[in-house]
Design a protein around this nucleic acid. Structure first.
Lengths: 253, 253
DNA sequence: CGATTCGTTGACATGCTTCAAACTTCGTGG
DNA sequence: CCACGAAGTTTGAAGCATGTCAACGAATCG
């Protein structure tokens, strides 16, 4: 099997954001008079380097230009819990404590190019609405993870995970059918609350069923529909409004 | 068994917030010239009434004065996923989409008194820092839930859940050893990703081990230490800083 | 007072973890 | 460039924790 692999490398302009309806990064990058400043804030990290660690002072957030980022927590016993993965176009680093300390750590999964945006900068430009959107997106992601962990079995979690990756790649202009996993089985298991062996076995079984092809980090999705079916339940996008009135009773004292 | 039960009812002043170091509610309530306005915004809901539903337009957030609230999502197949419970002093309703729609539903678990704060009001008073704190707290809670679902077994989840309730009650001036569960076994299971039967069985076993006494909604914790030990791992409060330097490499183009 | 919801308990099935081993790939230093 | 060890991936076997199904008693509600 030889898949036409699409990697995230060498994307040097933020047009990756355009298909998403103009993300924060695009808006900031296109604002007049600041391009030069931002270009100086561009950084490249090699695989396995931390962008920031839990507890550090937070004075900036980031946008992925190319590569990928793993967000994770460390528990008391030294185990890690992966909270999510950030792909090109994703914004991260806005989830800080009230004292502006990092609530999680962020590490590169491969050679990664980032843009760094100082927090103060955001306040100056009154990008409140954008900040709101990023925060809302982050919460939606967290809720989705909770839903997966609480209600789905291994098959459902893996299928949803792959489907989510495919969707995100598509929305950024990459192939949704063939891509390279930048994270290890370990990371996937740690994200989905599964043992590595379960991740591996499930992928193998999916392959045997003809849903996808997988070889190490290379993934080719053959049957998106079935994959989504296996993924099953997800957050209801439409309000569960059955026509009933709001029941909140008001009592003035 | 007859426990001295402490309920949340009849708390009519927000001094419940004081022990927490002055919460948003206390600050807003104590601000000059607005008390009257807020008092008019006080509402009482009976058990099982929605404060808001997923998808509705969001124009206000709330603080629990007495009673308790369940926050939840509805999945495509009509199942619900509980995201959390709010006790007296807790702020909720700030987690909205970028279009100011509710991301989750909120329903009362018992007769509940709330204060309603219009969003516009928050902006006017420049309570940005407080809003930041609430959002950060919300994210911490979400992360904790993810951690529980991904890494803890049934015993650990139940123990952590009870320990968390105890801690929150203590910080609000209630007894941390004896309290009344306002949520059903169903709700607890739906929150922790467990079947009702598992919740029931686990509580029974904890009682047999002498860790606690439980009778329906009445809970008395006999051995906090063991409960915490069972709860096991939690988010590491201290940064995992092993003295290593920040590894982010900067490259100016 | 009957109907319904809630909580408990038992028996059984099973999906996932754990343990173990082998193979492959990767990185590093000789 | 090769050799070696470390790390990542896969596969198998066995054990067990949790879900499912079923039944019953207790509390609650109208």
């Amino acid at each position: 099997m030889k898949i036409e692999l699409q990697t995230c490398h060498m994307v040097h302009e933020c047009h990756i954001c355009e298909p998403r309806g103009g993300c924060l990064g695009a808006q900031l990058l296109n604002s007049p008079g600041i391009s030069e400043h931002l270009k100086q804030a561009r950084r490249i990290s090699r695989k396995g380097e931390h962008v920031f660690r839990e507890g550090e002072a937070a004075d900036a957030f980031f946008i992925v230009r190319s590569g990928s980022i793993k967000s994770y927590l460390v528990t008391e016993d030294g185990e890690e819990q992966v909270l999510g993965f950030y792909l090109p176009g994703d914004v991260f680093g806005l989830d800080n404590t009230e004292y502006q300390q990092r609530m999680s750590s962020a590490i590169t999964l491969e050679t990664t190019s980032l843009c760094r945006f100082p927090h103060a900068y955001l306040a100056d430009k009154a990008q409140g609405a954008n900040l709101l959107r990023i925060t809302a997106e982050q919460m939606q992601r967290d809720h989705n993870l909770v839903l997966m962990l609480a209600r789905k079995d291994a098959d459902g979690r893996i299928a949803s995970f792959l489907d989510d990756l495919a969707t995100r790649y598509r929305s950024r202009g990459y192939s949704a059918s063939a891509f390279l996993l930048s994270m290890s089985r370990q990371d996937i298991g740690c994200y989905l609350g599964l043992a590595v062996e379960t991740v591996s076995r499930t992928l193998t079984r999916f392959q045997e069923c003809g849903v996808l092809k997988v070889n190490r980090r290379e993934v080719e999705i053959l049957d998106h529909e079935t994959l989504q079916k296996i993924g099953g339940i997800r957050i209801n996008s439409k309000p569960a409004n059955d026509g009933s009135v709001v029941e909140l009773r008001s009592v003035t004292r």
